[in-house]
Amino acid sequence: MPAPMIRLESLSRTFQVGDALVRALDQVDLGIEAGEYLSIMGPSGSGKSTLLNVLGLLDTPTAGAYWLNGVNTSAMSDDQLAATRQSQIGFVFQSFHLVPRMSALENVELPMLLAGLDPAERRERARAALAGVGLTGRSDHRPAQLSGGERQRVAIARAIVMQPKLLLADEPTGNLDTASGAEIVRIVEGLNERGLTLIVVTHDAQIGERARRRLRLRDGRVVEDLRTTRP
């Protein structure tokens, strides 16, 4: 059996809030294989966003170990973490996080720009990514000129344009109407079918139930880990 893509070993993340010590993640052990489709659910404050941030290398655990593709990430420097995020991880946020002064195309180009890719190559790959999410005609529009669903599709194009192995989505449909939300879910699931590991944090049970593996968190602990085999 190959080593899992992600392995968490008694991982904890605590915050000092005033006098109280908040255990956002408490001794979590978890393994995720490449290509999995996983949803994380739980009430507010259960630690699901913290878990996603730790998985995305945006947040660092206070205790325990996180192995990504066999590499212990706790030994990485800030720059190495940034480089790993750049090449291996894509993010999709509830509030889209598009840069308002940039066109859709430029927003998609942003990770490649930071990576120092050539403009011609950037343009070509960004266009392809936008076409992949069905936004071929909208590439020169500013975020303000796009609907919520279109904005989130731009964000998805941006998340996958560096061809990461792992896509992390934090309430991707939270700010969208039902139809747009369904469209976004269809797109990310399509990406998962082509081999991308997909982890979705949501409090929407309907969306959470769609995942083949469902984690439920409470008070920083994994209280449920359900799997369904592909129908």
């Binding site: 995305g56 945006l58 800030d78 720059d79 940034a82 480089a83 995020r85 750049q86 090449s87 993010f91 996080h97 840069v99 942003l110 990770p111 930071l114 990576a115 941006r158 560096m162």
Partner: peptide
Amino acid sequence: TAEIGLLRAVGAGRGQ
């Protein structure tokens, strides 16, 4: 600030 957060998420180092 939010833009800076995004830049960091899509792989910008502190130096960038």
